[in-house]
Structures are given as C-alpha cells and as structure tokens.
Amino acid sequence: MRPETEADLADMIASASGPICVRGGGTRGVHLDGAVLETGGLSGITLYEPGSLTLVARAGTPLAEIEAALDAEGQRLAFEPMDHRGLLGTSGAPTIGGVVSANVSGPRRVSVGACRDFMLGVRYVDGTGTLVKNGGRVMKNVTGYDLVKLMSGSWGTLGVLTEVSLKVLPKPETAAGVLIDGLSDVDAVQAMAKALGSPFEVSGAAHIPRGLNGQPVTMLRIEGFAGSVAYRADQIASLFGGMSVRVERDPETVAKGWAWVRDVDTFQGTEGDVWRVSCTPSDAAGLGAKMKLAALLYDWGGGLIWARVPEGTDLRTRLGAFDGHATLVRGAGQAKFQPEPAPVAALSRGLRARFDPKGILNTGLMG
C-alpha cells in the first residue's frame, strides 16, 4: 500500500482487517507481520518560512531534501538526526516522518534537546482511519493534549504521520573541537561533565575508548561565531591542564568527526549485536564496565552508550537494574525495546487501545 493523499491513507486504515507494517524509507530494517504501508507517496515540503524558522513537510519527504532546502538558507535541523543505513546495512532514504516517529536525535541533543523538542505540529491518521491534527506552526501553541510530543517516538503504533511542522535553527558560522587523549572511561565521563557544566556552551561530548588509532579519545564540540568559538575552545582546553589536549580548528574536520560519532561509524561493517543504552551520565562508566568485552562509544556526555557485543548477548541481564533502558538496535532473537514497568506498560496499552482500537498499527513492535 502506498497512499498518495491523506484521504487514501485514511481509507486504507479504516478498511484494514489485519496488521499493518508502517514503513517510511525502509532504513531501519523493521520487519513486522502484516501488509506493508509505505509513506513515500506523501512527500514534499508544503511550507518553509526561513524568517520564522518554520518548516512543514509531508511525512514521506526524504530527509536529504529537507536538509538541502535548509542548507540553502543557512539553516539546519538542530537535533542532528542519525543516518542508520551504515550501521544496519540497509538501503533506502531516511524520511522526516521516520525521524519523528522514532524521535531520532544525534550528539547535539545534549545541548539543544531531542527531535520532539523541535516539533510544532503533526497531522496523522489513527488506527480507526480518522485524520487528526494537533499543534500549530509556533512554539506557543500548546492548547489541548500534547499529541505532538506523544507521536514523536511512538514508532507508528498510535497513528501514521502524514505531515510534520518543525522549528529549525540557523547554522553556526564555524565549529571547533577539543580532543583529550588517553582518558579512562571514568575520567572521560568526569571530563565531559566538567565541560558541559562550564559556561562555554559545549554542543557535543563523546568518548571513544578505542578511537581510530586504537587509543581513547574524548571529544568536545564548540559552535558559533568565529571569535567566540576560538575563545571558548581555548577556555575549555585550559580546564584540562596536565592532560593531553588538542584543539581542532578546521570546521570540516570537526564536522566529519561528529558525523562519525552521530552515525556510529565505528561499528559499521562489523560483526555482533549493537545495543543503545540510555542512562544517567554519572552511571555510564560503571555500566560500561559491566558490559565487559563490549566495544563502546559514549555520547551525550555519557547519557547514551552504544555497545557492540557478541551475537546473542543478553545485555539487559548483564547490566541488571539501572536508571535507564537498553534497546537492541542491530541483532535478532531478543526484544528490541526494554520491557516497561507494569504501571507504565498499563498506560501504554491504554494509549494504544485508544488510538488503535483494532490493534493493527505496527503490532508487537513496542510490546
């Protein structure tokens, strides 16, 4: 099924008698039972007002098309969405609806927030075939239920997005990176916390225990106007006197380094399962130690850990109880999403029953 209009989509869902697998660009490799419903026919930017930092696009619009339109006006999606194709070995083209449905947010989340924090409005068709609109085109529009944030990260289980409205931001004039070599995971998490807690506006904080040369490197990013970036980079470097610190001032090199972090390039083309662990940053090093022989990448100042482990590893059991959750991103044979505590699971079931009473949208994906 490939609807070309919202009316077509509503008819397809209303008349469906069995499960529907909602698919955007097909880059996430999600395979579910049921008829495949592709959103690629619902494509195109319907409104872009650079002066008001607002963009509206149909859900099936390729992310590359949106980024090209923004780049032409010196703007960007500040939440820096990841491209999963290299990590998962998939093809296709990421769509803006897929980004929103999975709340895909990259390294800059640590400073500016997630995809859902830039959402202004949504249009979607729920499991009954009803077209729903919520939100608007300005951040102050918060009347009624906040379905905008609810749909961001719902993975198509509550409705099929047809259009999204987003706030965009100007691109910075330049960027620099502060690199600290040789830190242990414990010391790196402390260093990232120190940098993020400083007044120097760090927009990225990551640590790779085994970097490109096999040695640990801690990465800090600074963005903005050239004079400010130069000053802040030097000030951040000075926070770590006595350590092996380098400042990278070439913005293209900095951009490539953070794209490497964003897309988890270090695990691309490798064997093993890949997990995504969200946690309290101060717990990150301890959790990393529990993963034992895993290959790791810390992002968000330690709040996000990417882990590559031998195929079939039950990482949740190995980690035990902690304040966060572990999601299997690449691998088979285990639940993708962390099982929810009973009270939360009851709320989730209630929401799905309300939005999708026939139980047909991406059935089984989120429990």
Rank of each mutant, 00 (worst) to 15 (best):
K292L: 14
K292Q: 15
K292D: 15
K292M: 11
L293D: 15
L293A: 15
L293N: 15
L293C: 03
A294C: 10
A295K: 13
A295L: 09
A295H: 15
L296E: 04
L296S: 02
L296V: 06
Y298S: 02
D299M: 05
D299S: 10
W300D: 10
W300N: 03
G301N: 07
G302H: 02
G302V: 06
G303W: 02
G303M: 03
L304M: 12
I305K: 00
A307R: 03
A307C: 11
R308N: 13
V309L: 14
P310M: 09
P310L: 08
P310E: 11
E311P: 00
E311W: 05
G312N: 09
G312H: 10
T313P: 06
D314V: 01
R316V: 04
R316Q: 06
T317N: 13
T317H: 13
T317L: 13
R318K: 15
L319N: 03
L319T: 08
G320S: 09
G320I: 08
G320H: 11
G320F: 08
G320L: 09
A321N: 10
F322I: 01
D323A: 12
D323L: 08
D323V: 11
D323F: 03
D323H: 09
G324L: 05
G324K: 02
G324Q: 07
H325L: 10
H325K: 09
H325V: 01
T327S: 10
T327I: 14
L328Y: 05
L328E: 03
V329Q: 11
R330P: 00
G331D: 04
G331F: 07
A332Q: 14
A332G: 08
G333P: 13
G333N: 09
Q334C: 00
Q334A: 13
A335R: 14
K336L: 11
K336N: 04
K336G: 09
F337N: 12
F337R: 09
F337V: 05
F337W: 14
F337E: 12
Q338P: 00
Q338A: 14
Q338R: 12
Q338S: 11
P339Q: 06
E340A: 12
P341Q: 05
A342V: 14
A342Q: 13
P343F: 06
P343K: 04
P343V: 11
P343I: 07
A346S: 13
L347K: 02
L347G: 02
S348H: 11
R349K: 14
R349V: 05
R349P: 01
G350W: 01
L351K: 04
R352I: 00
A353T: 08
A353P: 01
R354Y: 12
F355S: 01
F355V: 03
F355W: 10
D356V: 06
P357T: 06
P357A: 04
K358Q: 11
K358W: 00
K358V: 00
K358L: 05
I360S: 01
I360V: 15
L361K: 03
L361G: 03
N362E: 07
N362D: 06
N362M: 07
T363Y: 05
T363D: 04
T363M: 03
T363L: 13
T363R: 15
G364W: 06
G364P: 08
L365D: 02
L365E: 03
L365P: 01
L365K: 09
M366S: 09
M366K: 14
